[in-house]
Structures are given as C-alpha cells and as structure tokens.
C-alpha cells in the first residue's frame, strides 16, 4: 500500500495567506429605511479559498452590521443560506470565492461578485425572504410516512434495493434553491415547485408507504407537476446534487401509469 507522505496535500490548505481584493455587490433592502432596494458595493480582502459566506461575515462583522442574511451550519447541510450569487442560486457556505470570481490577466478580480435574495419569494430584508409559502407547499404534499394495519414489533423490512429507489430525494435540505430558480414558480406563486415534488417523490417511491395515490392526486392538481416545463434550472441549482427534474419526471410517469 502506498504510504501517504506529508508533501501531498500542501496545496489543499483550507486557508492560505494569499488574499484577493474582491467587491461584493449586494442588493440591499430594508423597508424600515426605504421601499426600494439598492445595490451596494463592499470591498474586502479575502482568501479565495474561503466561502462566499465568509465574505458576507467579514462585511457584517467589520464593515456593516446591518447586512442581514440567514446561516447556521456553514457547510451546506442546514439549508439556511440559498441566495443568488452571480445570477445563480447557490448556498453561500458551499461556494468558494475562487470558483466564482473572474480574474484579469494580473490575477486581480475583474468583476464584482453579485449577491441578491432568491427570487419568487417576498424579500423581507436584504437576503432574507419569506419562507412560509415554500414550507406550505411542502406541508401540502403529505411529507410523512403513511402506513396502515398493525405495526410490526421490530423494524419494517426493506430490501437494500427498495431503499436505494428513493435515496436521491432523501437528501433534500429544504433550501429552496430549486423552487426559487424555477421560471414557472416566479410567474405563478401557486405552483407547488420542485422542492415539494421532490419530497413527495421521497415517499411515493418508499416501499413502506401506502399513501402514494393520495399524494399523486394532490400533484395532479392544476398547480401540480404538470406545470413543470422541464427547464432543468432546479437540477442545476440543487446543492445536494439531487436530480430534481428526473424526480419530477418520475412522478409524472407514475401519474400516467399509476405504477410506482
């Protein structure tokens, strides 16, 4: 077996001493101050291997304490900090500066990094949006296991294969990156949106569940899966790598064949 030696990972240090000067161009909105949103530039020196979230913290902690955003885990598992970064939905804590900053020939940042709230949900302050409609759509698809009959004394059996069937959609962290990247959702707030369908999929294809039919009926609604135009924005946006569009297609197919 090859023995790892000390010189193999120098390049991978989490933070080096090389700092880059970048401008964060942030869309600010505070109804206590004004009804209009405005873009504001902040210049910071930051290690390009750090996260966009680290940059936001630097601004909040050193330059402007009123800058407001949600965050908690800082490593892509809690779903708090979906935002539009350079026009694409991402988690600020899972996006490294170096991966999104454009450099000029001298190695300096060529353009500002733009950051704004996700679209389609009401902005409440800066990068914070009203998540209630999003969670309401989630709750509407019966996102819980439904079974009938007597409970077994031990666990329910499930083959490894059956478990694998819905693995992809169990990964969802309800960050709303998918739903708020969907043009149908932007234009029509009634659409359930991809995240709710992903969470319905998670149960429809769980061999232990017995409410697949009911969930399919809910999604057969005019604001249900048929609204999906298969633009793949959601799949591109998902920070958990869930094949969102595929899940929606599988639900559509199940509606037609009633087999799942």
């Amino acid at each position: 077996m090859a023995t790892p030696t000390m010189d193999r990972v120098e390049a991978g240090s989490a933070a080096s001493d090389h700092l880059l000067t970048v401008t964060f161009r942030i869309r600010r909105f505070n109804p206590e101050v004004s009804d209009e949103s405005t873009w504001q530039d902040f210049q910071i020196d930051i290690d390009p291997k750090e996260r966009v979230l680290d940059g936001l913290h630097k601004i909040k902690w050193e330059l402007d304490g009123s800058l407001t955003f949600r965050r908690s885990c800082a490593h892509g598992v809690c779903g708090s900090d979906a935002m539009r970064i350079n026009g694409k939905n991402r988690l600020a804590c899972k996006t490294l500066i170096k991966d999104i900053v454009a450099l000029d020939k001298t190695g300096a940042a060529a353009k500002p990094i733009t950051i704004e709230a996700i679209k389609g949900l009401t902005v409440l302050k800066d990068l914070v949006v009203d998540m209630e409609p999003f969670f309401q759509a989630y709750r509407d698809v019966m996102p819980f296991l439904v079974t009938t009959g007597n409970e077994p004394t031990r666990e329910r059996y499930q083959s490894a294969e059956d478990r694998e069937r819905f693995d992809d959609t169990t990964k969802c962290i309800l960050c709303a990156a998918c739903t708020s990247s969907c043009p149908v959702f932007w234009n029509d707030g009634q659409y359930f949106g991809p995240a709710a369908i992903v969470n319905a999929h998670r149960f429809i294809f769980d061999s232990r569940d017995e409410a697949g039919e009911q969930r399919l009926e809910i999604l057969n609604d005019r604001d249900g899966v048929w609204r999906c135009r298969t633009t793949f924005n959601c799949t591109d946006a998902c920070p958990r790598g869930i094949e969102v569009t595929k899940a929606i297609q599988e639900v559509k197919r199940a509606l037609i064949t009633r087999r799942f």
Binding site: L145, E155, R156, Y157, S159, A160, R163, F166, D167, F203
Partner: peptide, 20 residues
C-alpha cells in the same frame, strides 16, 4: 428509540436481509 424512528419513516441503510 431506533425502531420508533424506523416506524416514523427514517430511511436507515439496510442489511442484505432487509433489516437496519
């Protein structure tokens, strides 16, 4: 506690026999 979670729907990894 584990069996309760399984009954609530928790997708545990399974053995080849289908147990947790």
């Amino acid at each position: 506690a584990v069996l309760d979670l399984e009954k609530m729907g928790l997708p545990f990894n399974r053995t080849p026999e289908g147990n947790i």
